Computed example of a mutant assay.
Amino acid sequence: MSAVRVHNLSISLDGFATGDGQALDAPFGHAGERLHEWMFATRFWHEMGGGGDGAAGADHVFAARHGQGIGAEIMGAGKFGPPGWQDDPAWQGWWGDTPPFRTPVFVLTHRPRPSIEMGGGTTYHFLDAPPAEALERAREAAGGLDVRVGGGPTVVRDFLAEGLVDHLHVVQVPILLGRGVRLWDGLEALEKTYTIEAVSTPSGVTHLTFTRV
């Protein structure tokens, strides 16, 4: 059976994976881009954006695993758009006409809409479904490849709570946000079901990888 993976989920020292006050002009709320500055310097990011070289160190190696062997993605409503995007029938996500996913993407929302076919192989499907049901749909679409749970933190937490994640890559960034949406709440003793490795890099972040035992 295909694996369920989470990659490049950045959190602050106090456990927040996004800030408070998400809006159209602030996708991560008051956190701004601070959680992801480590990634912006990597070759992976520059290759995704089509420009520049970027660094090819350890941060790049971790970041680049994001797309390897992925056949479908699951994301939450908060990753797909700002609060209220369901009221805008023209909203097609943050990523323009050619999103970077290049696979079927299943957006979890209590207000589903018809699927949207985008450029580059991405098709958005909108589901009102619990994690296990959404995963079943994504696995069918993935064609034997792995399924990535792309976020945000609430969706990742829900999948972890139901024991559905095989590989979790969290990047701890040395900042304190104080408010926002936390990843770890309600996941007491999660470490008992995973082998955990930690790698710190010159950028100041620590890559934590959780592999199901």
Rank of each mutant, 00 (worst) to 15 (best):
A3N: 12
R5Y: 15
V6H: 02
L9P: 05
I11M: 13
I11Q: 09
S12Y: 02
L13K: 15
L13G: 13
G15L: 11
F16Y: 03
T18R: 03
D20W: 14
D20H: 11
G21Y: 00
G21M: 04
L24K: 13
P27D: 07
H30L: 06
A31N: 10
H36R: 14
R43H: 15
H46R: 02
M48N: 05
G50M: 00
G50L: 09
G52P: 05
G52V: 04
D53F: 15
A55D: 06
A58Y: 06
V61K: 09
F62Y: 03
A63C: 10
A64S: 13
R65D: 05
R65T: 14
Q68C: 14
G71V: 10
G71A: 05
A72N: 07
A77D: 05
A77E: 08
P82W: 06
P82C: 03
Q86H: 07
W94G: 04
G96S: 02
D97Q: 08
D97K: 09
T98G: 10
P100K: 08
F101S: 04
V105I: 02
F106W: 06
L108G: 00
R111D: 15
R113Y: 15
E117I: 13
M118R: 04
M118W: 01
G120C: 01
T122I: 01
T123K: 01
Y124F: 09
L127I: 09
D128G: 09
A129K: 01
L135F: 07
E136H: 04
E136G: 03
R139H: 06
G143E: 01
G144S: 15
G144A: 15
V147Q: 06
V147F: 00
V149S: 07
V149Q: 04
G151F: 02
V155F: 07
V156T: 11
R157K: 13
A161K: 04
E162F: 02
G163C: 01
D166V: 00
H167E: 11
L168K: 10
V171A: 05
P174A: 12
I175M: 10
L177S: 05
G178N: 15
R182F: 12
W184F: 13
D185C: 08
G186I: 05
G186Q: 07
L187Q: 01
E188T: 08
E191I: 10
E191A: 13
K192A: 11
I196T: 13
I196L: 02
A198F: 12
S200P: 00
T201Q: 09
P202W: 02
P202K: 02
P202S: 08
S203E: 02
V205M: 00
L208I: 15
L208Y: 13
F210I: 06
V213W: 04
V213Q: 09
